[in-house]
Design a binder for these strands. Structure first.
Length: 755
RNA sequence: GGGCGUGUAGCUCAGGUGGUUAGAGCGUACGGUUCACAUCCGUAAGGUCUGCGGUUCGAGUCCGCACAUGCCCACCA
């Protein structure tokens, strides 16, 4: 290694070299760190939110990584055994999508390959691209313990999942249910509510006359005049074929005397009742709504309370079922709509059509329109899990920063529905559930069969069916929702559910040493999808919250304040920034903008500022080194150890005292800011101090002073302390400079003693 | 429809518990610099702090309303 700092600051050269130096030291691994902490906790843990294996680094990842790296680096310097555990997520549907797209280029579908070959293909993909984002994080300077990298489909991890699943199953919390679910016809899978995106689209509201059945007995007894039809308004006329009732609000005077009447469903001629339900809004449309329990969430709920039958009219391929009769069977939904409209017009039952904008559900992965349909799925009961998770945050066992995000969490967890955990895709953890053939035959006779009389849990195929003892059981085809696995991330990555070894303090397992973790830093959009689920999983399996603090980082928006999006090409690639300005500048420039919980509009100006700042640090350091190194200086004292000694105050000039006092102040404020996730504020403080107090004032004064008054000790002390404080933000340049400082017995700045 | 947030210099943003001439970076204008740094130094221009009303001796800062803008949630067919 060269002895002096190069004249020009070249981030690329420095960063490559320094990252290798750190990796060689092994200090990213907490086992290699001797703790300097005598009391309280000696470890400090963060688990990296596992990026999807489909992804490459984007601004959100970059920001999140910087935040976590700052926290980890500071704690490491403070003497904690720090673990920042990285890993990746198999990301069920997302990854399957990508590979299916690849196949499509070859003119193949996953069905062409078959399940086994397809999964092999996805594994090939994961081997090739799965860790790309982790490699990119290294460029940013992330000090993760790469030796502990995990993947949600690792063998150990699968064990954890099977363990968790069996546990829930034995508790009786997993059940099979008939529900209206969000079905994505393209992905061929159900989606949770959270995976559905609503987009406003122009549509129509169709007013359809449903004729009343004549000579119905109430018509004879009732003196009031009964009209010969009831008007129904709908946005989806084709679903009328599956109607099993018409509902009105019980308070609605217009329809009061029609409740209990029978109407004839147009086209199919089925007789269906008029019912009343408080969920019907009398102000909307005609005030009368058709009820299609098999294809609408609200309708399904109304059907439950009124015990209405359900008739599926749309199948999983978005084609009309045989229930729709000769007219429509086999048609696509859109064609069927045309047909139905035509027919209604013919029969003069279509009163009018209004323009109407409404929210259409789309698959948040592939953008296909969701088809709500009735389907058998697996559910996890939330009744026991959710309240505990709610209480943990209420009792401040977990603290959200910024605090307002708590509300999002509470709103969801307090009104939670059971979790649909099954997905009809191939890539993921296949449910460890088997079906007894005899049991399933019984099911046909008695729909009241309990889940454990038909299904049982087993990781491998059992030799004998544990239910009937003779059949050849079949494993359920479904895989688990991808969030089922990430919900276990904070402890499954640390070796759970392996039994602990009850040995000495020193032989603690990772799980004992590092769980619970300290901070979870993540994006706001997955508070409920992921954070909430980790909380109840952690509480259930570990009896402790998985983390103490949740930091929700701001969203990085475009300059115009819009979401950065790949498809719209409005994104900024952090790797481009690193290439152009260096990782240090990118880190500092980004974090400089993170003031409160406000989302940030990204502008490159701040990164340029970061680059200039790094250059300033570089050159100021070169100046200091030059002064200290000058042998002709009579005051030169190579024996001083600035690591521990604050220069003696008695011999100091006014300027010396001033800079030392100022330094003392900023140490306090930077510490305080970092403890409170005020990253931007801390970086502003450091910037101002280094540039304006140290360079503009102290160093300029130093240059003007008489030689005998100069205090190199002060200069070196202030520089060293600044480098330490700056290190979490600007790790590479500060380390490079530190390596050139004339200090005895020094190691690496990453393990230097923090203030 | 509900909730949350934002609106301060041309641009991107700071301005804990209300208190003297409202700050930074970038940009702009002018000047300087062999001796750490032109990725530098100095100076300057530029703001009715979205609007209206209120509380107060005093409000960018607290309260109400309005307008603008963004995000999240929701079963209005």
């Amino acid at each position: 290694m060269e002895k002096e700092l190069s004249k020009v600051y070249e981030p690329k050269k420095v960063e490559e070299k320094i990252y290798k130096l750190w990796e060689k030291s092994g200090f990213f691994n907490p086992d290699k760190l001797a703790t300097r902490k005598k009391q309280q906790a000696t470890s400090y843990t963060i688990v990296l939110p596992p990026p999807n294996i489909t992804g490459s680094l984007h601004m959100g990842h970059a920001l999140n990584a910087i935040v976590q790296d700052i926290l980890i680096r500071k704690k490491r310097m403070e003497g904690f055994q720090t673990l920042w555990l990285p890993g990746t997520d198999h990301a069920g549907i997302a990854t399957q999508n990508v590979v299916e797209k690849e196949l499509k280029k070859e003119g193949l579908t996953r069905q062409d390959l078959g399940r086994e070959k397809f999964i092999k293909r996805v594994w090939q993909w994961q081997e090739k691209y799965g860790n790309i984002i982790l490699e990119q994080l290294k460029k940013l300077g992330a000090s993760c313990d790469w030796s502990r990298t995990r993947f949600t489909l690792d063998k150990d991890y699968c064990q954890a999942i099977n363990h968790a699943f069996s546990y829930y199953f034995k508790k009786g919390w997993i059940y099979r249910g008939n529900r209206v679910i969000n079905w994505c016809p393209r992905c061929g899978s159900s989606l949770s509510d959270l995976e559905v995106e609503y987009k406003e689209k122009k549509g129509h509201l169709w007013y359809i006359k449903y004729p009343l059945k004549k000579n119905h007995k109430s018509q004879i007894t009732n003196h009031k005049q009964i009209p010969n039809y009831i008007m129904v308004a709908t946005t989806r006329p084709e679903t009328m074929l599956g109607d099993t009732a018409v509902a009105v609000n019980p308070q609605d005077k217009r329809y009061k005397n029609l409740i209990g009447e029978i109407v004839i469903l147009p086209i199919l001629g089925r007789e269906i009742p008029i019912i009343s339900d408080k969920n019907v809004d009398p102000k909307f449309g005609s005030g009368a709504v058709k009820i299609t329990p098999a294809h609408d969430f609200l309708d399904w709920e109304i059907a439950q309370t009124h015990k209405l039958p359900l008739i599926p009219v749309i199948d999983k391929n978005r084609k009309m079922t045989k229930e729709t009769g000769k007219l429509c069977q086999g048609l696509k939904v859109s064609d069927c709509r045309q047909k139905v409209i035509e027919e209604l017009k013919k029969q003069k039952l279509l009163e009018k059509i209004e323009d109407y904008n409404h929210q259409i559900p789309h698959c948040f992965r592939c953008g296909t329109i969701i088809e709500p349909l009735i389907s058998e799925q697996w559910f996890l009961k939330m009744k026991n899990l959710a309240p505990k998770a709610r209480m943990a945050v209420k009792k401040k066992e977990i603290i959200f920063t910024p605090k307002r995000w708590e509300k999002i969490y509470f709103d969801w967890i307090s009104n939670i529905k059971d979790w649909c955990i099954s997905r009809q895709i191939w890539w993921g953890h296949r449910m460890p559930i088997w079906r007894c053939q005899i049991g399933s035959k019984l099911k046909v006779k008695s729909s009241r069969l309990k889940v454990n009389e038909e299904y049982f849990v087993s990781v491998k195929k059992p030799k004998r069916c544990p239910i009937c003892g003779k059949c050849n059981p079949e494993q359920v085809e479904d895989v688990l929702d991808t969030w089922f696995s990430s919900a276990l991330w904070p402890f499954a990555t640390l070796g759970w559910p392996k039994k602990r070894k009850a040995k000495s303090e020193k032989r603690k397992t990772d799980l004992e040493k590092f769980y619970p973790t300290d901070v979870l830093s993540t994006a706001p959009e997955i508070i409920n999808l992921w954070v909430a689920r980790m909380i109840f999983s952690g509480l259930e399996f570990m009896k402790k919250t998985p983390f103490k603090k949740v930091y929700i980082h701001p969203v990085v928006l475009t300059r115009e304040g819009k979401r950065m999006s790949k498809s719209l090409e409005t994104g900024v690639d952090p790797l481009d920034l690193i290439e152009k300005y260096g990782a240090d500048a990118t880190r500092f420039g980004l974090i400089y903008q993170i003031m409160g919980g406000q989302d940030i509009r990204f502008v490159e100006d701040h990164i340029i500022m970061g680059k200039k700042f790094c250059n300033k640090i570089w050159n100021a350091s070169r100046f200091v080194l030059e002064q200290i190194g000058k042998p002709q200086n009579p005051n030169h004292k190579s024996q001083t150890n600035p690591k521990t000694q604050i220069p003696n105050l008695k011999q100091l000039t006014k300027a010396d005292r001033l800079i030392l006092k100022k330094l003392e102040d900023i140490i306090k404020s930077v510490n305080k800011d970092l403890e409170n996730f005020r990253f931007g504020q801390a970086s502003h403080t450091l910037y101002d101090f280094f540039w304006h107090d140290l360079c503009d004032k102290y160093i300029e004064q130093f240059k003007r002073q008489e030689t005998r008054d100069k205090k190199e000790e002060v200069l070196l002390y202030v520089l060293l302390t600044s480098l330490k404080l700056l290190h979490p933000f600007i790790p590479f340049a500060t380390e490079e400079i530190y390596q050139k400082l004339p200090i005895k017995n020094k190691g690496l700045l990453i393990t230097e003693v923090w203030q």
